[in-house]
């Protein structure tokens, strides 16, 4: 049987392992950012990646946004109607989306769709020695491969979250106004009156921007740090999805507490 000391030792090893990885990830983060200025001259690299990271994620974002909006419309109506406040449906739907569901659900989907793909791509480039070959050609793979992908992710996330929220509001409109008979004018005018540009929209954008940094950072780090074997890449891909999902939810709580905690 294992002694208490053995368990302590394992715990300690895991702890130092965690901090070691965090350190490596931070150094990589700094090097990725260091490569950013030179990319302004070659912005086409970022545009290319924005296409594969952002544009190709559009479909899943559009469909999910629509359904989330429709569910919000339905659930919101059922609750509000008890208080005779169904006119406020627009406010409920839009605030839920803009403040929380838009950034959070988009980031979770983004981690699954784009983050995992980034990790797998970079991990496989490492496994097939493409990154090594670049180094030997005197081309820094961090600047050439990682930085454009990171910037593309950071640019795409807020845009995708905005699209998610917009489509969600329309989904809520279909269900609330189209099916359940909420007044058309009330849906929009209440929304216009109650949703604040800075308190709500801007905070939502900040959230989605932060999530974009976190997800893409985790994704490129896991790919770059992956053990260069099939198993290593598959583990890294799983870790990207798990770690970024957890990080998104934890960060969401912290950001929400900072932004909306003082009311």
């Amino acid at each position: 049987m294992k002694s208490v000391l053995d368990h302590l030792q394992t715990l300690g090893q895991k702890g130092t392992g965690f901090f070691e990885r965090l350190g490596r990830a931070s150094i990589l983060f700094a090097r990725i950012l260091g490569g950013a200025p030179s990319l302004f001259l070659r912005f086409s690299l970022v545009v290319q990646q924005t296409y594969s990271v952002g544009v190709l994620s559009l479909l899943i974002i559009l469909v999910s946004g629509l359904f989330v909006g429709m569910v919000l419309g339905l659930q919101g109506y059922n609750t509000l109607v008890d208080f005779g406040a169904e006119e406020s449906l627009g406010v409920v739907v839009s605030l839920s989306l803009v403040r929380e569901l838009g950034p959070v659900v988009t980031a979770l989907l983004f981690a699954g769709r784009a983050g995992s793909a980034l990790t797998a791509e970079i991990g496989l480039m490492k496994a097939t020695e493409q990154l090594s070959a670049m180094e030997m050609m005197a081309i820094d793979p961090i600047r050439r491969v990682l930085t454009p992908r990171f910037l593309a992710g950071v640019i795409s996330m807020p845009l995708l979250a905005a699209i998610f929220s917009a489509v969600g509001v329309i989904g809520g409109y279909f269900v609330g106004v189209g099916l359940l008979g909420v007044d058309d004018g009330a849906y929009w005018s209440q929304m216009q009156a109650k949703v604040d540009l800075y308190d709500d929209l801007l905070n939502g954008v900040i959230k989605s921007f932060v999530f974009g940094i976190i997800v893409t950072w985790i994704a490129v780090f896991e790919g770059y740090d992956a053990t260069p074997t099939s198993e290593g890449v598959s583990r890294a891909t799983t870790r990207t999805v798990v770690h970024s999902s957890l990080a998104i939810l934890a960060m969401d709580f912290i950001l929400t507490a900072l932004m909306f905690g003082e009311h």
Binding site: E129, Q130, A133, M136, A138
Partner: peptide
Amino acid sequence: LRKRMGMLFQNGALLT
């Protein structure tokens, strides 16, 4: 210095 060194990897390591 590496610009003056070429290296051929085992499987070519072409960018896919």
